[in-house]
């Protein structure tokens, strides 16, 4: 396995003066291509903060962040947007999908936004992904009408659309019932096994963590594991 991403001495503070909160106090973390890792830690420990920094949605206060050999600490907003589009997929807990669009339209978005239109090739891949997520019947469904579990599976499909090296999932099963959560996790594990996509999944669920090869724990502003 080769190094996919690396962070060193990562510090993130919010606010300043008396209101200053040091959430991350010098995190060192490296991930290899093909890993399936769980991100654990108590509420408020900084899991989401770390994920958004790794996802280039937020700049760290200090420290180094690189992925695929690219230094992301100093990159411009435009370069980060492009990098994100090509190399990183996201699954969030809430507000994942564009409610006025169908499942397929949501899935092809990352490709369409890059190519400027929805190509036939993109649609074909989107359909394949939705079929793989067990949503063959829901391809042209408006996402507003999907169940919570179905929505998260559409979100996973969309995260995979541009064949990213890394998928960051912030409590993807956080508001799903056991059965739906297990279904989503099985699909993630399957993709990880078949395609070698690297996943980092934050969760409070020990069962989900147990499904991952690696457990990374955030605590006291530092990372272990």
């Amino acid at each position: 396995m080769t190094a996919l991403l690396q962070v060193q001495d990562l510090v993130k503070t919010f606010g300043s003066g008396d209101a200053e909160t040091r959430v991350l106090r010098g995190v060192h973390l490296a991930m290899q291509t093909g890993e399936l890792a769980a991100l654990l830690g108590p509420s408020g420990s900084g899991k989401s903060t770390l994920l958004t920094i790794l996802g280039t949605l937020m700049h760290p206060t200090s420290g180094q962040h690189s992925m695929l050999g690219v230094d992301l600490t100093t990159a411009s907003d435009r370069a980060l947007t492009e990098f994100r589009n090509q190399h990183i997929g996201f699954v969030f807990q809430f507000h994942n999908l564009l409610p006025d669009f169908t499942a397929l339209e949501n899935v092809v978005f990352p490709t369409a936004v890059r190519e400027g239109r929805e190509t036939a090739a993109a649609r074909t891949r989107g359909q394949e992904l939705l079929v793989r997520m067990g949503l063959a019947e829901r391809i042209h469904f408006p996402t507003a009408n999907l169940s919570g579990g179905q929505k998260q599976r559409v979100a996973v499909a969309r995260a995979l659309m541009n064949r990213p090296e890394l998928v960051l999932a912030d409590e993807p099963t956080g508001n799903l019932d056991r059965a739906s959560a297990a279904q989503v996790m099985d699909l993630i594990a399957e993709i990880n096994r078949d395609e070698g996509t690297t996943f980092l999944i934050s969760t409070h669920d020990e069962k989900i963590a147990a499904l991952c090869q690696r457990q990374i724990v955030v605590g006291e502003g530092l990372v272990t594991g």
Partner: peptide, 10 residues
């Protein structure tokens, strides 16, 4: 926010 996370530019 979602669109931006998915790689939509400003």
């Amino acid at each position: 926010g979602i669109m931006r996370a998915m790689g939509a530019g400003r």
